[in-house]
Design a protein around this nucleic acid. Sequence first.
DNA 1: TTCTAACAATTAAACATTTAACTATTACTG
DNA 2: CAGTAATAGTTAAATGTTTAATTGTTAGAA
Lengths: 153, 153
Amino acid sequence: MTEDEFSHDSAHARPFIDAVIGMRLAIKQFYHQRIRKSEMSDLTYEMFQVMVVLWNKREANQQDLANAVQKNKASLTPLIDNLCKRDLVTRSTDANDRRNNVIRLTEKGKLYERYIHPIQKEFYELLLSEIDEEDLNAVTRILNKLVGRVSTE
Amino acid sequence: MTEDEFSHDSAHARPFIDAVIGMRLAIKQFYHQRIRKSEMSDLTYEMFQVMVVLWNKREANQQDLANAVQKNKASLTPLIDNLCKRDLVTRSTDANDRRNNVIRLTEKGKLYERYIHPIQKEFYELLLSEIDEEDLNAVTRILNKLVGRVSTE
DNA sequence: TTCTAACAATTAAACATTTAACTATTACTG
DNA sequence: CAGTAATAGTTAAATGTTTAATTGTTAGAA
């Protein structure tokens, strides 16, 4: 194997990596644009991710939130600061375990939930306008499989 | 359709989105860990991405670099600042068009290229240890297809 | 019971990202 | 040629991310 072949071979993951990075960016930009044009326009995409978890679970500690949105605990502190500042959530110390904060939706935060469905529906239909559901599920499965493999290294 | 069914339906993209986010995070963490343990340990993953483009193209203007790594022009300014600070690249005004800067590798920057191949090779082999090459290429194609569709909206 | 280990959240420092506005430069139009 | 439009890069302000260290709290072991 010559040096050209070696370097060519080792770059075979590049198209895949670029595709993943591109997909994530496209998702973020899609949602960001829709959020900005909705009644939730004071939310960033990152805050929105946290809110989605809370709309589903109603309340959670910060560690669980961090896990759910796949972010670092330390990143959650300013994110939740900003959500509190916008009166969308409250943060209180968990009486049963004072290492934990409980994050809950405010009434304002609960109202925002109604704006999420049309955006999610639009996104999902956009995906299905391009590929069929079987392929979408297959890609999801394969990605999760790869995550599992890469994460253990 | 009841409200439960409506909200359930509109969240069908969620597993896919989570998988994409997880995959990107896994890629970043994989490379970051390997870079930190290599001779390139003064590089962040983001700087590494820029360097990869330069190792391939030898020199580029900032706009092309930004496009290649799928980042915002404004993000490139501090990134390249930091690469210059580490004496890995130089930045000079393009004599043919003074709106452009030309970014070039230094000798030190060129030396770093030798450390990239083992990492890329390891990552690629990791992927192929979990799925076959056909599936990897199929996922790549589908993601790029979806990016194209989502980006035009 | 005491001590150690583990855990949640925060902090500091460095790095990164986005938007909008700006400046200097170049291209294009009339 | 003059004026307008477009472009590359920078800046400011706000937001976000990571690592390591820290503090306070709880769990577990002896």
